[in-house]
Design a protein around this nucleic acid. Structure first.
Lengths: 73, 73
DNA sequence: CCTTGACTTGTCAAAAATGTCAAGTATGGA
DNA sequence: TCCATACTTGACATTTTTGACAAGTCAAGG
């Protein structure tokens, strides 16, 4: 799979899980451990950035799913 | 979970899967799509670096497991 | 010993993620 | 129309990953 496709699909998955929980991007950024701006949520969901493992981990915690589930793509 | 713990555990998992396949770090780096140095394999397995999603994806392809399986940690 | 293979560690440049802020678009309700 | 909410986008500094190379450790075998 191409990098751009991977990032786009992973972003869609995160967006999907976020919306399932009824959270806005602002809500999600607020739930994430440490500093996290809504800018980053937007960039990740749209596949414009290539998040690190730690970032994915923090997102999975905020969405209350495992990393495995988050990346079941 | 702390960042350092996450990276250490993910690294161990990658090492475990690599060894299960009977591959050396050099073998794995060679199987990975695109350019990939053994230096990076070592740094990731020891938890000294925080790999990106795309890097994890390429590793999972080389180890012939899904991203989900790779990150079942 | 000496060599080879496997891995680690240091440094470096280039590219990119992260964190922050400001400004833009779009939608829906008062 | 005005305002608030939600999201996108651009720019910027800081930090870090990635990729490349060289040198180091360590163990097994000749």
């Amino acid at each position: 799979m191409e990098k751009s496709d991977l990032l786009r699909i992973a972003g869609k998955r995160i967006q999907q899980l976020r919306e399932q929980k009824g959270l806005t991007q602002v809500d999600l950024a607020g739930k994430i451990q440490g500093e996290f701006d809504t800018t980053n949520v937007s960039r990740i969901e749209s596949g414009r950035t290539n998040p690190t493992l730690y970032t994915l981990h923090r997102i999975s915690e905020a969405l209350e799913v495992s990393l495995s589930e988050l990346l079941a793509i």
